[in-house]
Amino acid sequence: MKIEIRQARPEDLPEILRIEKASFARPWSEVHWRYEFEKPQTRVLVVTVEDQVVGYLCSWLMGEEMEIANLAVAPEWRGKGLGKALLTTALRMGLEEGVRRVWLEVREGNRVAQRLYRSLGFVVVGRRKGYYPDTGEDALIMGLSLTQALENLNFLTTKKERRERPWG
């Protein structure tokens, strides 16, 4: 099975939108995504299986900081390590671009995503009360210091994961 992580292209947008709609109660619109593709500080990665987009990650670079703005994997491909591979790739690319601190927001009730982020060293650093307008749910603010993680670059993947998933 051919798995690849690469920079997203405009022609990937229909699949990104399909995954977005399947993943979020309030998905980003096509107009929003087109705007993201135009912004110089935005990085959009996709993971493909046999050349079919099955997941994506959108991040924003701001000096030495990066925010993970959006991450999703198609429902039929979840639980296979593709989200972790996308996030790991984004962190590595961030390091190459001088990023030292990474932030993200996650629904308080999204335990699966929190487990993924914690597995890579993210910690809860704050809370945004009532952040999600559809439910009024709080957002947890999670952060990761890449400068501390540099002491052990293997925080991104274990040896076993690198053998089994060479794309990440």
Results as ranks from 00 to 15, higher is better:
T157P: 01
L140F: 14
M93S: 12
A74I: 08
E65A: 09
E11C: 03
K84V: 02
Q114T: 11
I5S: 03
G143D: 10
F122T: 00
A72E: 05
G63A: 08
T88D: 11
A139C: 10
S119Q: 13
I141A: 10
P40V: 11
Y56W: 06
R127N: 10
E108Y: 11
R128M: 07
N110P: 12
V112A: 15
D12S: 04
K80I: 06
G126A: 10
R100V: 13
V47P: 00
F155H: 12
E36R: 06
M66Y: 06
A22P: 02
E105H: 12
V46Q: 00
G143C: 09
D138C: 09
P27Y: 10
V99W: 12
G126H: 14
V125E: 15
L13F: 02
V124Y: 05
P14I: 04
E105N: 13
R165Y: 12
T147G: 05
I5Q: 02
K129Q: 12
L13Y: 01
Y132T: 09
E15L: 13
K160V: 14
Q148W: 08
T135A: 09
V73A: 06
M1N: 05
A85M: 12
A90L: 04
W33D: 03
E137K: 07
V31Y: 04
W77P: 01
L82F: 15
P40G: 06
V49D: 00
R128Q: 08
W103L: 15
A139P: 06
V106R: 00
L140S: 04
M142D: 00
E20K: 07
I19H: 06
K84E: 02
L156F: 13
L61K: 05
G55V: 06
V124E: 15
R92K: 14
M1L: 07
W103G: 04
K21W: 04
C58Y: 03
I19K: 07
I5R: 01
A149K: 15
M93P: 00
F37W: 09
Q52N: 07
L57G: 03
N154L: 11
L57P: 01
L45W: 05
W77Y: 15
G168E: 09
E38C: 10
G81N: 11
L71N: 00
A69M: 10
W103Y: 15
L146N: 01
T88H: 08
I3K: 13
W60E: 05
R6Y: 03
C58W: 03
R43F: 00
K2H: 07
